[in-house]
Amino acid sequence: MRRAGILPTLLLLAGFALLYLPIVALVVYSFNDGRLVSVWSGWSLRWYRALWDNRQMLDSAAVTLKAGFVSATLALVAGTLAAIVLARAGRFAGRSGFAGLVYLPLVMPEIVLGLSLLLLFVELDLDRGFATLVLGHAGFSAAFVAVVVHSRLVAVDRSIEEAAMDLGAPPLKTFLWITAPMIAPSMVAAWLLAFTLSLDDLVIASFVTGPGATTLPMRVYSQVRLGVTPEINAISTLFVAAVALVILTASLVNKGLIPGRSNGDSA
């Protein structure tokens, strides 16, 4: 194999330093004992303790996790359906309009999505709260699910599904027994993506949620507006750790846990 040259190596180092140094600094300063974020005054867990005593933060964390779980599950179902239609239904009237609707949330700024979803809920006279939060998040993350699942689905040899039908399995059974196991890694990845999208989202949540369902990013945002505080560093560190854990799990699932994909040979 080629050896890395000096210039590419420097580029890589500089590029990834740019991406990661701010986060590393944030993590380190979350263990800082002092109140000033820029002055180091020794290791301490005091900001994590402060976080633990902050009931509001903990409640919001619970709301955020629950909303992420439910909305990711809804988005997985809806997004997978859309991906199946795009990859398997062939031509039908309005197909390009359908594809446009599937991908639209990907190319719309969050503020547009949030505002339009809110106005819809107002128009339907739905009380804003946990339910609207979940619907709003599922609505936009389903688009990401569709992209991830679709890209795997088009790579699956269609004749495998045909073989199942040829051997007597009706369409739904074919999907559950044959297609779903083959695209399972992408469905796991898509669910995780939808989950983290929901966890991260500030803008859409600010529009569609209501009293009693304030999410963690909304709390963090209102604190950040007041200035940089070590407590935010602590909660951000927990966030980053959680995401890293999720990513690690996902890559393990993709690599080791799905039999036949571990050694990278093509079946």
Binding site: Y20, V37, L199, D200, L202, V220, V228, F239, V240, I247
Partner: peptide, 18 residues
């Protein structure tokens, strides 16, 4: 890919710190 999955709010916050 990792930053892609990390909260954009937190990353902006980290960047402000820098």
């Amino acid at each position: 890919i990792l930053p892609f999955w990390t909260s954009s709010l937190i990353r902006v916050y980290a960047w402000i710190g820098i």
